[in-house]
Design a protein around this nucleic acid. Structure first.
Lengths: 153, 153
DNA sequence: TAGTTAGTTCAGTAGATACTGAACTAACTA
DNA sequence: TAGTTAGTTCAGTATCTACTGAACTAACTA
């Protein structure tokens, strides 16, 4: 299989993973996947559109989404009006951290449920179990040192 | 606000959380939410349908999904043909553990990408960073003792 | 036997989402 | 000035998902 073909297949796998696991639109997933593996690592919307086979309009919408979410950084170059994009170094750690934040939301929901059912009631037991499962994992994560294979910049 | 009304509002919050965070259909989320807070804790499809305002058909489809995923347990009673459902004690720990499995999938995808880009190449650097962020969190959870506020049964 | 009811299956529908082409804006260049 | 091109916006479309009513099955009861 040609190099490019293999890359695109990998990009597609990455896109589908992001779609299923994180609910990201397919094209946003492809952009992310492409930016993970492309050479050079910084590319214009036009280059990316060509590579993944999407329209300019889709690129505009999805790049907006990705830059707003801080997964992708935009860079301009002096004397050029083209914007160049690259994946943020911290993108994946950000993804992980947001996921953890989601856990806290559930834990708080469970806490509200316990109040509603009456703390100490038999009915609150189910909720307490859930609360504790989430509190456990959140605490675990909070105690751990921040990940840092931080590259020098 | 009436007790029941408050409960249903809580169920709705839970359902929307499950929908957004886990991609579960709204009715499946409502079933889960209802089963977390309802009294008695074990209810028939008919009772649940009435409580959350869904059709029999939707109950059939969504209960199937939830029992297949082991989030909800079905129980029969001698001399009755009605099935009764309750949330599995381990449901939420299961949710957390599946989420962790999703992380491993990403890590492996990143590893494939590194092979494709050529390990050691500059191009593989982005992928290596992602790989390590995921490997870090996965290792963290793998090392930790299994959660156990296990109730006696 | 006929009637009742728990539960399943399926065809159709409503609503949402992702995507695109085309028209447009804005910044530059000759 | 007119022409070029990066990027945005928007209306329309295709596709998908969740949901329901209705027809059905299967297990029981009188």
């Amino acid at each position: 299989m040609a190099e490019r073909e293999q890359e695109l297949e990998w990009v597609e796998r990455m896109a589908m993973f992001c779609a299923e696991e994180y609910g990201v639109p397919p094209i946003a997933g492809r952009i992310l996947g492409w930016l993970m593996i492309c050479d050079p690592p910084e590319q214009s919307a036009g280059q990316i559109a060509t590579a993944i086979g999407a329209s300019k309009a889709s690129l505009a919408t999805n790049m907006r989404m990705l830059t707003d979410a801080k997964f992708v950084r935009r860079r301009t170059r002096p004397g050029e009006r083209t914007n160049y994009y690259r994946v943020d170094d911290d993108a994946w750690e950000t993804v992980i951290r947001r996921r953890m934040a989601g856990l806290a939301e559930f834990r708080d929901l469970a806490a509200d449920g316990i109040d509603l059912a009456g703390p100490g009631s038999a009915r609150a037991e189910r909720l307490r179990v859930a609360y504790e499962a989430y509190a456990w994992i959140i605490k675990l994560f909070a105690e751990v040192p921040r990940f840092s294979t931080r590259r020098e910049r």
